[in-house]
């Protein structure tokens, strides 16, 4: 859960298909370059595969597919943001990882009503930055919805 109600929240910013997203910093374990990704046959499309991160098996989630954004071009590099969910390690595959921003709660807006449903489900509001908008990513919902989608 994002820590609302406090004056300032720190976000790790990432770019996914040209859109900036922010993840609450306390949810981010590490940032790494995904290497030797093993694809998993028959797995849902959003699951890019599994990889070995310092002896742990990490499940990589392709955020472009997860958010129904245009898929990555072949050969295009990606970065991974390591997060934990219910004791398991996941890597969220994003295009690039940017700086950490400390943002006042006052610059946060609720999700615009016309936001794409796929995005709206995982977005926890939008921050108005000077030059662009940053969508706040609710990490738990990234997984929660996954489960719903699988059950469906």
């Amino acid at each position: 859960m994002t820590t609302l109600g406090q004056d300032e929240i720190e976000y790790v910013t990432v770019m996914i298909a040209g859109q900036m997203f922010g993840l609450p910093i306390e949810r981010v374990h590490d940032v790494f370059i995904p290497e030797r990704l093993t694809r998993i046959p028959l797995a849902p499309l959003q699951i890019a595969g599994v990889l070995n991160l310092r002896g742990r098996i990490v499940t990589a989630i392709d955020m472009r597919r997860r958010l129904a954004l245009p898929p990555r071009e072949k050969g295009e590099k990606s970065m991974a943001v390591g997060v934990e969910h219910r004791g398991e390690s996941f890597g969220l595959l994003v295009d690039t990882v940017g700086e950490v921003l400390k943002l006042p709660a006052s610059s946060r807006d609720p999700n615009p009503v016309n936001l794409d449903l796929c995005l709206a489900r995982v977005a926890h509001g939008v921050h108005r930055l000077d030059d662009r908008l940053m969508v706040i990513l609710d990490v738990d919902r990234v997984f929660a919805l996954q489960a719903e989608a699988l059950a469906a």
């Binding site: 030797r36 093993t38 998993i40 797995a43 849902p44 990889l51 499940t59």
Partner: peptide, 20 residues
Amino acid sequence: SMLRHLTMFSGNTILGDGAV
């Protein structure tokens, strides 16, 4: 847990060469 519905696999492991 996101992959457990795949009946074709029983688990995964890290091989000697580091690959999963």
